[in-house]
Amino acid sequence: MTAPSSPYARYALRAASLLAALGIWQLLTSQHVNLWLRFAQFPTATQVADEFAHRLGTAVYWQDLTDSLTRILTGFALAAVAGIAVGTAIARSRLAADLLGPLLEVLRPIPAIALVPVAILLFPTNEQGIVFITFTAAFFPVLVSTRHAVRALTPVWEEAVLTMGGGRLRILASVVLPGALPGILGGLSVGIGVSWICVISAEMISGQYGVGYRTWQDYTIVNYPGVLVGMATIGLLGWLTSTAVEVAGRRVTRWLPRPATERAVPVRVARRPAARAHTSGRAAS
């Protein structure tokens, strides 16, 4: 099968892919297919759609949604700022690397969700605990990508600013942060995804309101269509937020050399500049 090239054909193909998945789901559940996987008890796509439509009209649904969004955006924003700051410090300063490096390396492998007991002990409210867990989830991907991106910077850029009389702050603002941005964006993309996983899990364990909390509640009262509405909500919100990160990222890295054909691909992780690609051109005369 050859890939279509016109953007409309590509949108159609993507929509068809989603619709086909829904169709297969409907078929398997409405026919109560019981092969090795058992679809007999599984809610049908139309049942879930009915439940979804019903919930959209309730205040609780929107409260859950805004609660989850507030938690994730707060945690993610804090993680972005802290991750970029600490990652840059570790990459640029040997003292920071020695002081913070070992500590962070020990903390990094701990899954954020395993910090629930810690969050409950440390924070006065559940709300703060959930934000803390979301923060921790996004912090490490941002930190690691920032550290790598800053270390991979072309030394010539820094030397150029130094020989213009620029100091540390000037190098940070004019070379390090803009130069590392494409790499940092990769970490932000991963971070927002991991944040969703952790905010939902944390809500299931300790939340009041929130999409994760509601999904777990529906499970305990055996409302399976409700559970699937929760999952669909998470999927859509996750898609929305990671697309927002991608779009924002592309806006701030417009300077990256991109092949002309890439225009048709709305979502792609930013890469390092292919800076050596155009060195043999001719001067204008």
Binding site: V156, E159, A160, T163, S174, A275, R276
Partner: peptide, 19 residues
């Protein structure tokens, strides 16, 4: 130390690509 008195011109890639 480096100073604005003495400018350096590099073989290539000396420009900041985002500017």
């Amino acid at each position: 130390r480096p100073e604005a008195d003495r400018a350096l011109v590099f073989q290539e890639d000396g420009l900041l690509p985002w500017r």
